[in-house]
Design a protein around this nucleic acid. Sequence first.
DNA 1: CTATTTTCCTACTATACTACTAGGAATTAA
DNA 2: TTAATTCCTAGTAGTATAGTAGGAAAATAG
Lengths: 155, 155
Amino acid sequence: MKISAKVDYALQAVVEIAVATKKDSLISTEEIASRRDIPEKFLEGILTLLRKSGVINSYRGPSGGYELAKKPQDIAVADIIRIIDGPLAAVRGFAPEEIEYAGPVKHVADVWIATRASLRNVLENISIADILSGDFDVSVSKLLNEKDARKRRKA
Amino acid sequence: MKISAKVDYALQAVVEIAVATKKDSLISTEEIASRRDIPEKFLEGILTLLRKSGVINSYRGPSGGYELAKKPQDIAVADIIRIIDGPLAAVRGFAPEEIEYAGPVKHVADVWIATRASLRNVLENISIADILSGDFDVSVSKLLNEKDARKRRKA
DNA sequence: CTATTTTCCTACTATACTACTAGGAATTAA
DNA sequence: TTAATTCCTAGTAGTATAGTAGGAAAATAG
């Protein structure tokens, strides 16, 4: 269950682009890369994916750069993850319901279904606007306020 | 956010072992492998990890095999994932709170914290006993009964 | 005591993925 | 025309995933 560097970078990049767009300006790859300490050429590839999926628009030439193609409240974290990394939760590369669990292990399917549902509830419910404001949906705030939410679990 | 073959196999194996233990008998690697269609030698490595972590006991020789070392209700899915794959949610290999998100991206940290909290809520709350009975905690049942929980999301 | 069945242990392999890097072509603005 | 930008193709090193192979150690049944 790892969150890749690519997804983390993508999310940070989209937030930086959102900030620029709010000021009616464009932001370049180099600017994002240096602000967020992301390898520039690596970031380039990420921005290409976001553009091809219609999350951002791009303009070339001097004073070119990127802007958001949608309203910040209409871009969910889940969207970005799916664009960059594919499905939110895949078991051995398959969707949970595609695997056959026969006999006593039948309900193992439910474990992965519930896992996916839970990820959806969080990630579909956080938008770029929420990240900008820090003002999250109640369901998300509840998670953040849980005891030890910000602590690593003992092995 | 992929669930590895290893974790999926491990969970299935533990369930099969739980079934055997309930009948006061041992089950061999070969038996599990053939029942659940898991490569035998690959499964061997998985069972070694589970044994070293104290989830199962092993006995050698003819009529040897594995049994659960704990009660099924005391083994959570989260435990198995941590044994096999490491932390439930790691961002670029780090725990969410270890990464510095400065300036406007500050709240990106909260996204990953909430993601981890949400995974914990599901995976700490499903035990092997629950998988055997199919009778899950209310919080988990709620997730399973959500609309489209068993359907893939459109890209 | 021997044959057999099992776990246990070390090592190896092929493939894919992750996280990058390099070089230059196309576009646009000053 | 120059410089700044995105766009496009093609790499590469390292790590992780999903296995395989071969045999040693232990236990049981005969």
